[in-house]
Amino acid sequence: MFQSIATRSIIPVGLAVTGFVAVCCLSLYSIMKQDMIDDAAQNGRNIANTVVLSTRYAMLNNDRQNLGNIIANIGQHQGVEHLRIFNHDGLINFSRNQSEIGHKVNKKVEGCSGCHSGVKPAEQLATEKQTRRFVNERGVEVLAMSQPIYNEPSCSTSTCHYHSKELKVLGMLDIGLDQGPLQNSLALMRYRMIVFTLMILVLTVGGVAALLNRSFFIPLKKLVAVTSIEEPYDSEKKLESGYGELSILARNFHSLIVRLNNTRDSLDRCRSCSKENDDTKAN
C-alpha cells in the first residue's frame, strides 16, 4: 500500500498540512484563552476597585452597618462567589458569607503569598499578582482578586476613628468571580475551532487528492492498463490526449508498438516470400 504513488503523494501533504494547522490552532487557542482570562481579571479588578470606592465614604465615617450592607448586596450579584474585607491582621470584618466574619484568612494561599512570602510583607504588589485562580469548596472555578485598601491622610487624621500614619495597608478587599461562563465560552470556542480545523483539513487534503487523482492517477492507471503485458495489445487502444506528458508517453509507446508490428509483418512477409521462392525452385 505504501509503495503506490497515490499513497506516497498524499501522506506527506496530509501530514504536513494536518500537523501545521493543528499547531496553529492549538497556539491560537492558548493565546485567545490567555487574552480572555486577562480580560476577565481586568474586569474583576475594576469591580474590586468600584467596591472599594463605593465603601470609602462608609469607611471614613466608620459606618459599619452601611459597609456591611454594601458588601452583602454586591455579594448577592450573580457570578460573585465571595466578597470580603479583612483588616491588616487578616481578620475578616465584612463578608457576603456571614459565617466567616471574625475568622482569620490563611496567609499561605496563593493570593496572600505574593505579599507575605518574605519576612516583612510587601506594601505594593504587581497587578497580575493580585489575581489568583482556584477551585473552591463547592467545586466552582474561581478567579479571585485582592485589592489593598491603603492608608490615606484622611484615614489617619479622621476624628471618629484613628489609624496610625505608619500603617501603609489598612486591609484588603477580596472578591472571587465564578469562571463558569468564561469556561463555557472557551469550550464553545474550542469546539468551533476543532470543527473549523477539520473542515480546513478535509478541504485541503481532499482538494489535493482530487486534483492529483484527476490529473495524474487516473491517466496513470489508464497508461498502465494500455501498456499492460497481460492484455493482448490492441493497436487502436490509446490514451486520450489531454493528459499532458502521460498522453505523449502513451503515444510514443503506441508508435513504438506500431513500428514493431510493421517490422514483424514485414519479416513474416519476407519469410513467406522466401518460402514461396524455395518451393518454386524445388518444383
Binding site: F2, R8, I11, P12, L15, A16, T18, G19, F20, A22, V23, L26, S27, S30, K33, Q34
Partner: peptide
C-alpha cells in the same frame, strides 16, 4: 508558567516534523 496550556502545541509540532522526516527517510 504556561507549559500545561501549550504542551499539546509543542507535542503536535514535534510529532509532525519528526514523522515527516521519518517517513521521508523510510520511503
Amino acid at each position: 508558567g504556561v507549559l500545561p496550556e501549550n504542551f499539546w502545541a509543542v507535542l503536535v509540532a514535534g510529532m509532525t516534523i519528526l514523522s515527516l522526516e521519518s517517513y521521508h527517510i523510510w520511503s
